[in-house]
Simulated scan of single mutants.
Amino acid sequence: MSNSMVSAKSPSKGLAKRKKTIVLLSMLAPGAIWLVLLRYLPMFGIVIAFQKFTIYTKAPTLLNNIIHSKWVGFKNFEFLFATSDSWNMIRNTVGYNALWIVLGTVIAVAFAIMLSLITKKFVAKTYQTLMFFPYFLSWVVASYFLMAFLDPTYGLISHLQKQAGMEVTQWYFINKPWPIILTIAYLWKNIGYSTVLYLAAITGIDSSQYEAASIDGASKWQQIRYITIPHLKPMIIILFIMSVGRIINSDFGLFYQVPKNSGPLFPTTQVMDTYVYRAFMATNNPGMSTAASLLQNVVGFFCVLTANSIVRKIDEESSLF
């Protein structure tokens, strides 16, 4: 009797399990299709980095163009290091990213902790929304916000300088202030996103730990130091490792749109992405831009491995893999 009941129930259980699997796979399918179409299939185009890409006029499809293009080896990579701007470009790319990784982490964690300490939810949500809003703006819009202050003819700062009888500063022709301007612009636009991530991690901390610490006489600073920051440590490390992987990538919109593509500012604003774009517009050679992108991803991959290895030696539980 019991065996017959088990055999009767088992098909229904198997059917329910299959239905659940199909539902989960259907939820996964859009993301998987997107990943295959936009991330894996385009990897075939990596071969262009080693070719002098030409259009095959008889049948100008992408496959025919790749097949009939001449192989040039690593020649497409040479333009990244052959000019006098190479060192300046690499220095700016790595320098800005290293600075912003440190500042972005410290400021985002500080803002997240401060927001978590606000007792009134309406005020906290208002601050959170105002900080997160710039993240959704394009750099084109942000560049015009900045131009409203820096424009030598109609800008607010220029107007104040004129009213004070001072000489108007030609901001788009002077290199010295732009590292500070670009840093402020980057933090203004991106710090809200990082703050929300850390704030979400803080809200997941068990409130009983703070209550116990408060009963034991711990101050707010001691609670932050011994409870909040240790709980944020894994997320800080993971985001740090991922950021290191993009250390030779740069935000094209920030470095191209915000300085308004001003030639005199190239020593300060020229980074790898803008350099590749300008080289492509001048030479119309997709092989060089593909080579630059491939180099960025390969270097980023090894940077992630290196950073993760260092973290694993220091604290194995906090490593990414």
Rank of each mutant, 00 (worst) to 15 (best):
V6N: 14
V6S: 14
A8W: 03
P11K: 05
R18S: 08
T21R: 13
I22W: 00
V23H: 09
S26C: 14
L28P: 13
P30V: 08
R39N: 15
Y40S: 09
L41N: 03
V47C: 07
A49M: 09
A49I: 03
F50R: 10
T54Y: 05
T57F: 12
K58I: 13
A59P: 08
A59I: 12
P60M: 11
L63W: 14
L63D: 02
L63G: 11
L63F: 13
N65M: 07
I67W: 11
H68T: 10
S69R: 07
K75I: 09
F79R: 15
F79D: 05
L80C: 00
L80Y: 04
L80A: 09
D85G: 04
M89I: 12
M89Y: 02
I90M: 10
R91K: 15
V94R: 13
L99K: 15
I101S: 12
I101G: 11
I101P: 13
G104A: 05
G104F: 02
V106F: 12
A108G: 07
V109G: 05
V109F: 00
A112W: 07
L115A: 03
I118L: 03
T119E: 14
A124H: 11
T129V: 12
T129M: 14
L130G: 01
M131C: 02
M131H: 03
W139M: 09
F145V: 12
F145T: 07
F145C: 12
F145M: 14
L146M: 08
L146H: 02
M147E: 04
D151S: 06
D151R: 07
D151P: 10
T153F: 11
S158L: 11
L160Q: 09
Q161L: 09
K162H: 12
A164L: 04
M166T: 07
E167Q: 15
V168F: 11
W171N: 05
I181H: 03
T183P: 08
N190C: 08
I191K: 07
V196S: 00
L197A: 00
Y198L: 02
A200S: 02
I202Q: 07
S208M: 05
A213P: 04
S214Y: 09
I215F: 08
I215D: 00
W221I: 12
W221M: 08
Q222P: 15
I224E: 04
R225E: 11
R225V: 09
R225A: 10
Y226E: 14
I227V: 08
I229A: 06
P230V: 04
H231W: 06
L232R: 11
L239I: 14
S243C: 08
G245T: 05
G245M: 07
R246Q: 13
I247K: 08
D251G: 02
F252M: 00
L254P: 03
Q257N: 14
K260G: 01
T269P: 02
T269M: 09
M272Y: 04
V276A: 14
F280A: 04
M281T: 13
M281N: 03
M281C: 01
N285G: 09
N285A: 12
P286D: 05
M288S: 05
A291S: 03
A291L: 08
L294W: 11
L295K: 08
L295M: 07
Q296F: 12
Q296N: 07
T306I: 15
I310W: 01
K313R: 15
I314P: 06
E316V: 07
E317A: 01
S318T: 07
S318K: 13
L320V: 00
F321M: 11
